[in-house]
Structures are given as structure tokens and as C-alpha cells.
Design a protein around this nucleic acid. Structure first.
Lengths: 197, 197
DNA sequence: ATATTAAAAATGAATGTTCATTCTTTTTTT
DNA sequence: AAAAAAAGAATGAACATTCATTTTTAATAT
């Protein structure tokens, strides 16, 4: 038990070190030796847990992506009305990204570069299934505009990634009010406008 | 004259090679030797034009960013009404990103990683001044919602970056109609809704 | 026009460093 | 005391950059 415990701790330390170093220096300037040092481990030890540097990054990505979606959907209940569901998920996502900016930025970096394997990328995308289902339901009920899922994602969830980056880089600290405004923009843009119908 | 001409050609070839290789393999897997080969040039020649690999990437970023904003604002005239201006700029940006996906993706990568120097990043941001001015005007005239420029950017311009990436990765080819829908979402989310006032 | 030459541009091969990964030994666990 | 885990040092490849030459260019003299 103690053995396994220790192993998990080491693995987590390595994953955390990877996130920090890749965020600050980039993949190309985050050598295994530095990652090992930050995790208080010998470089050789990394290879007991990961096959290669690529494997380390892939696994880190999947771990973070899983944590992200688990958080986003934790309080979601399919039986709730579409609008309430959307709002809940949207705020959970915002909460995750702004609270754990490091992890959010790491994901943004993975999503915008050829840093991780295509297979890991595909694996990570699967996590969004519940959101796609929700949109389908919303479109069927005439609550959400009948536009492509890509557009829906781009205009609601994705802007948060940009804001998170701005937060880190420009010391723009979003207030409660900012977040509410952001949500309103997101929902305004995709909800069917009843009065216009 | 012919001399200078040739130099410019070489420099451009190097910049293009950098964009292609960084897009496909990432900064860390785009060695100078490969960049040189793709530009039909000796590795040593790169150093006649650029101080270092970092300098090459910084200059590539600035060159692309300048081309991007030049295109975006080319047809913009400050005297036009705010809504028309916004629409025009928005569509120019969309046109650039979808037509020259390679360059768009390169910018996305620069904007989401520590790949370029902070000073180059700052330099690149200056280009957006006209858009910020437009938003200021729009807010003063009560046409654009009084939210932060970061939110405005995130919810109008930035989603295009996501769509462009999706286009490259998932063979989602946006149609004319998709682009119009996207614009509508963007404008809907930030315009002041007169009927609600 | 042509030949000559100095300067500029370009090159391929070296250089030295950095880094991912492996090997051998030591420490820890059971 | 055997097995598992971890370590530090070693290895070899890859890489950014520099060096010593060669090639090209452009100006001048014939």
C-alpha cells in the first residue's frame, strides 16, 4: 500500500512539474533534467513512470483534460432544463479555468500546438460528449440556434481560454461581474431570440 | 538592386519555412537544419539574416502579425458608422484566417505558448489599436455593450482562431453561410439590444 | 564590351553543448 | 535476502551556432 502510495505521489509530482515548466518555458525549453529536479526525482526515475518525454506530455494532457471535464460536468444533471444546464456547465468551466489557471493554460497550449500526439488529442476530445448532447437537445427544443457545434463551442466555451491567458499575461483579474457579463455574451449569442421569431 | 532583391527572397523563404515547420512539428521539432533545407539555403545562411533561432521566430511572428492586421484594417475607414466598421473588420479578419490558415495557425501558436519573446508579443499587440479605438467609439455611442475590451475580443475575434484550428484539424470547411452565422453570433453578443432597453 | 579585383553572400563541414535515454550501482521495501 | 524502486553517472545523438572556404556580385580599369 505504502509502495503504491509513494508511486502515485511521484507520478503526480512529475505531472505538476511538467505543467509548470511547459507553461513557463515551453515544451522545447523544458528538459527532462529540469522536470526531474522540480519533482525532486532523478531523471532516470521518470522512465519508471513514463515511456518517453512524449508519453509524459501525452499523459499529462489527458490527466488535466479529465480533471477539467470531471469538474465541468460534476454538478450537471441531464434532467434539468437546457438553459439551466448550459449555465451550470458554463460557470463550472469558468471556475475551473480561472481557479486553476495553470492547468487551463496547459490545455490551451496542448490544443494550439502539435505538442501532443493526435491519438491523445482524439482521446481528450471524447470528454466533451455531454456538452454535445446538451446542444443537440437544445436545438431540438428550439432553445439553441441551429448552428454547428464548432460555432457553439467557439462562441461560448472557447473565449474563456483567451480570457484566462489574458489573466495570466496582463494581470487582468476578472471580477464576479466580469464573469457574469461573459456568460451573458455567451448565452445571448447562441440562444434563440424569441422576440425576433 | 538585384542583390537586395535576392536577400529579401531568401529571408521570405526562411520565414515561410519556419511557419510551415513550426505548424506541423512544433518549435521543439523544427531544427535550423530542417528550416534551412526547406528554404533551399545552408544552415549558416540563416545567421546572415537572423541573430538566432529565437530571433527567427520573433521576426516571423511580427511579420505575420503585421500582414494580418494590415489586411484586417486595409479597407477600414474611421468615418464609417461603428456597426459597418465592425462588420467590415470582422469579415476581413475571417477572410485572412480562413484563406491563409497556415499563418493564422502560426499566430495562434505564438499567442498560446511562451515561444516568442515577451517584447515581441507586446510589439505585436500594438497592431490592434484601431480596433480598440473603434470599440471605444461604439461604447460612447451606446452601440456596443459597455464591457471590457478583453471580453469584446474574446467573444468576437478570438473564436475565429478556434474555428480555423478546427478547420485544419477536422476538415471542417466553413461555408459562406457558416461565416455569416459566426458573424451574427459575434455581433449579437456585443451589440446593445435596443428592444431590451 | 571584357577582364580584374575587392567586397559581400553563401556554403558545407566542424564545434561544443545540451539533452533524452540507458546502464550500473545503491537504497528501500517486503 | 530477494525483489523493486530509485539514483547518479555515462552514452550517444541531435542540435544551434561558428569557422574556413568558395562562389557570386558589383565596381573599376582596360
Amino acid at each position: 500500500m505504502a509502495k503504491l502510495q509513494k508511486s502515485i505521489e511521484k507520478k503526480e509530482a512529475l505531472i505538476n512539474a511538467t505543467i509548470t515548466l511547459v507553461n513557463n518555458d515551453g515544451f522545447h525549453a523544458a528538459p527532462m533534467s529540469k522536470i526531474a529536479k522540480m519533482a525532486n526525482v532523478s531523471p532516470a526515475t521518470i522512465y519508471l513512470y513514463f515511456k518517453s518525454k512524449q508519453d509524459l506530455v501525452n499523459q499529462t494532457y489527458l490527466q488535466v483534460k479529465n480533471a477539467f471535464t470531471a469538474y465541468a460536468f460534476e454538478t450537471y444533471d441531464e434532467k434539468m432544463p437546457v438553459e439551466d444546464s448550459f449555465k451550470m456547465i458554463w460557470f463550472r468551466i469558468a471556475e475551473f479555468k480561472f481557479r486553476d489557471c495553470e492547468r487551463g493554460l496547459f490545455l490551451a497550449q496542448c490544443d494550439n500546438t502539435p505538442m501532443i500526439d493526435e491519438s491523445s488529442r482524439q482521446e481528450g476530445i471524447k470528454n466533451l460528449k455531454p456538452l454535445l448532447d446538451l446542444w443537440k437537445k437544445g436545438k431540438e427544443q428550439g432553445i439553441i440556434k441551429p448552428v454547428s457545434d464548432y460555432l457553439l463551442y467557439a462562441y461560448t466555451v472557447n473565449p474563456l481560454s483567451y480570457l484566462m491567458m489574458i489573466k495570466k499575461r496582463n494581470a487582468f483579474v476578472p471580477t464576479e461581474e466580469n464573469i457574469n457579463e461573459a456568460y451573458q455574451l455567451a448565452w445571448d449569442s447562441i440562444k434563440v431570440n424569441k422576440t425576433n421569431k
